[in-house]
């Protein structure tokens, strides 16, 4: 072995002072940190580029509306009072449909999680229903439930139902079995075990399922308002699309995005409140 210049931990070369070197730090990265302001910067930059591009003509009016025009459209919409007419109807559809779908989905999901026969019978059915594009069923829903609100509620309810079922029974399956066994060992009744151990234990899974279900509900809102809706954010967007009115189109899409962010924040708050026990 030739003499090496690397410093060695061996006490045989205590005089290797000239090769002393600080150990290089190599443990950085791979640790996500909260950097909230970055999102705002990204948004601001995109909007600024769009504004500048449309003003200079670098982006044609056919490609993208001018952000300031979109804002003006929103202000006009608000001033005309139509914003709340659209929003009110859409929110009603969203709330009624999603509440129906999610509560039914949680109920069915819990029964699937608890009873083997129900699981054997319903899991394949839910798996068959899950991938159906709900939009394709809209004409059918119109025949079943009429062209008015009921068919819109039904479409949104159906769309939120299946993902909620899947998330819920998965969450029930994931409840720590040792906790259930503990309940049994203390002689708790079946109902007590379900109410006090299974349901709270499944809550994190159910809530994260709801996050997805509610996003799907917003997507389906536009689909639900395709047939027979004169007012509503979805109808507003569709009308703007058929008129090729990009300002209104983007204004509508912006409202939907804000609705999504709002919903997601709300669930986040509920999670923090209900799931504070998580370590």
């Amino acid at each position: 072995m030739p003499e090496t210049t690397l410093s060695s931990p061996s006490p045989a070369s205590p005089s290797g002072a000239e090769t002393r070197q600080e150990v290089r730090f190599r443990g950085g990265g791979f640790a996500p940190k909260s950097r909230r302001w970055v999102a705002f910067v990204v948004f601001a930059v995109i909007i600024a580029v769009a504004e500048w591009g449309t003003r200079t003509g670098w982006i044609s009016a056919l490609t993208l509306p001018r952000p300031s025009d979109v804002l003006q459209t929103l202000i006009d919409l608000y001033a005309s009072g139509m914003l709340f007419k659209h929003l009110g109807l859409s929110l009603t559809r969203l709330v009624v449909g999603a509440a129906l779908g999610a509560s039914l989905g949680i109920a069915v999901g819990v029964t699937i999680g608890l009873f083997s026969y129900v699981r054997a019978g319903l899991v394949p059915l839910v798996a068959a229903l899950f991938p159906i594009p709900k939009i394709a069923l809209l004409p059918l829903f119109v025949i079943w439930f009429g062209i008015d609100e009921a068919s819109k509620y039904a479409l949104i309810a159906f769309g939120t139902f299946t993902p909620t079922v899947v998330a819920t029974y998965g969450a029930v399956d994931n409840v720590d079995r040792s906790l259930i066994r503990m309940g049994q060992s203390f002689g708790l009744s079946w109902l007590s075990i379900v109410r006090k151990i299974v349901l709270p234990g499944a809550m994190p899974g159910i809530l994260s399922g709801l996050r997805i279900s509610l996003a799907i509900a917003i997507i389906l809102l536009v689909a639900a308002e395709m047939l027979g809706a004169q007012y509503g954010i979805g109808a507003y967007i569709l009308e703007a699309g058929s008129l090729y009115d990009l300002e209104r189109l983007f204004a509508g899409v912006l409202i939907l995005s804000l609705l999504g962010v709002l919903l997601s924040t709300t669930i986040g708050m509920i999670e923090r409140r209900l799931l504070g026990w998580r370590s």
Binding site: P139, M226, L227, G228, A229, A235
Partner: peptide, 11 residues
């Protein structure tokens, strides 16, 4: 609004 001629006929 019903989007498609077919849907209008059905309705």
């Amino acid at each position: 609004p019903l989007q498609k001629v077919g849907a209008v006929i059905g309705a």
